[in-house]
Simulated assay, not measured.
Amino acid sequence: MGHGDHLCLAFDDDAEKRRVATRYTADGLIRGERVLYFADRSDPDTVREWLHAARIDVAGASARGQLRVVTADETYLAPGVFDPDTMVRRLRAEIGASLDAGYTGMRVTGEMDWALREVPGSERLREYETKVNEVFVGRPASAICHYDARLFGPDALAAFDDCHPRRVELTPLYSTSVLRIVPSFQEGQRTLRVSGSVDMQTADRLEEALRATRAWPGDVRIDMRDLEFIDLTGLRVLVRTADSLDDGRRLRVEHLPEMLCKVIHLAGLDRSPALIVTSSEEVMAR
């Protein structure tokens, strides 16, 4: 991340959220930035424990004012109602105060679960996420907003994701110069992104990653828009995975190059009712 960034972290694993928040906070402190953590579902003491476990000098950073861990009630909801314009003004003031105090910039990271408590003004959260983009653009500041996919539905998750210029990439299930497999949330739905090449040497890695998706609810989506090559061995992995799904679930392979879609059809691999293959052109035409 760099100055000016405003990212969305969609997650459904508390360990993943902790990893991202801890790394983001630690990097900011190392770079001489001031860090504000707005907690909600995680109480401030728990957040401090995470940071302490990561060998961050929580006491020292807090004492000199470089680190503040506060609650949503003390920040987003301090007036008793959520008002986007009030919060935007507050963030601008915090950036200015951080620079005046000699810090190289400011980082903000916040848990957004409070918006689900039906507090007055919470329906304006999308408005806030859109407006706050201008707070960070061109300024020595950045932010990551946490959205728990177990609490926010797919439609809400997609809407809030769209308000952010970028998203946090989750920990890859497999990553080399040849093949990269990364879980993500796209359009508010859990998705596996596959990029690079799948052949006899890497097909087992793809199959291993796909086994992890069996615990996902609903259909399994795979985004292959960045796939460069997949051989017959890899295609058979997709078929086996689709056939292994139960309860009427399907494996949806999306953004596959048109030529590969034709290969699958000619080889008869699309006969499985559990395998749905769509090209980029078909996805865009929806």
Rank of each mutant, 00 (worst) to 15 (best):
Y174K: 05
P273N: 00
V178W: 00
T213S: 11
D83V: 15
D27C: 02
D45W: 04
R166W: 05
G60A: 04
R124Y: 01
R150Q: 13
M112P: 02
D5W: 05
G110W: 08
R166G: 09
G60E: 03
V198L: 06
M284E: 06
E127V: 13
L157E: 10
L116I: 07
R240W: 03
V135Q: 03
R286V: 08
V220M: 09
A53D: 14
A274P: 00
D83I: 14
R89W: 02
A159I: 11
P165V: 12
R252M: 10
L256G: 03
L266N: 02
D246K: 12
R23Y: 04
E228C: 08
T22H: 05
D100E: 15
H146I: 12
H146N: 11
G96V: 09
T104I: 01
A209R: 11
D243P: 06
R126I: 05
T130A: 01
V88A: 11
V263K: 03
P84W: 13
D73S: 14
P257N: 03
A63W: 04
P165D: 09
P154V: 13
S42R: 14
F82D: 08
I144P: 11
T202N: 03
P183C: 07
K262H: 01
L206E: 02
V47T: 13
V194E: 06
R252S: 00
S272P: 02
P84R: 12
P183A: 09
A39E: 03
R34W: 04
T278R: 12
G96Y: 03
V108F: 12
M106Y: 13
V20D: 01
A209I: 11
G153W: 03
G268W: 09
H146V: 09
L232A: 06
L192P: 09
V81L: 14
R126Q: 03
L266K: 06
A141G: 13
D226T: 07
W50A: 10
P183M: 07
R249D: 01
T191A: 04
R18K: 15
M284H: 02
A149K: 14
F229G: 06
D5Y: 08
R126C: 03
S142N: 13
D148S: 15
P120I: 11
E282M: 07
G105Y: 10
L210G: 08
Y103E: 04
T86V: 15
L9I: 10
Y103M: 10
